[in-house]
């Protein structure tokens, strides 16, 4: 069995989800967008972030259609506001 994917959420998205860390099983052909859609189905409050969320795979920004590999750390980032 392949290693799961670790999904991280931060700030307002973490609060909307109710948790900041979820492990999900990997499947062949999985994309970042598919993971997000799965999260939104589970937690409809996340839909508010669908248009603005940035995605990072293993600490690098990736486009929504990026492939997700077993063991990846996939983070969904609401609009950043550091500084």
């Amino acid at each position: 069995m392949s290693r799961p994917v670790t999904v991280l959420l931060f700030a307002a998205a973490r609060e909307a989800c109710g948790t900041g860390r979820i492990e999900i099983p990997h499947r062949e052909g999985l994309t970042a967008a598919a993971v997000w859609e799965g999260l939104v189905r589970e937690k409809p409050a996340l839909e508010a972030f669908s248009r603005t969320v940035s995605i990072a795979r293993n600490h690098r920004f990736v486009p929504r259609d990026a492939a997700v590999e077993p063991g990846d750390e996939l983070a969904f980032l609401p609009p950043v506001s550091g500084g």
């Binding site: 603005t52 940035s54 920004f61 609009p79 506001s81």
Partner: peptide, 12 residues
């Protein structure tokens, strides 16, 4: 309130 920066998703 959470402060939100630019709304455009980042692709770096």
């Amino acid at each position: 309130v959470w402060v939100e920066g630019p709304k455009e998703p980042v692709t770096e």
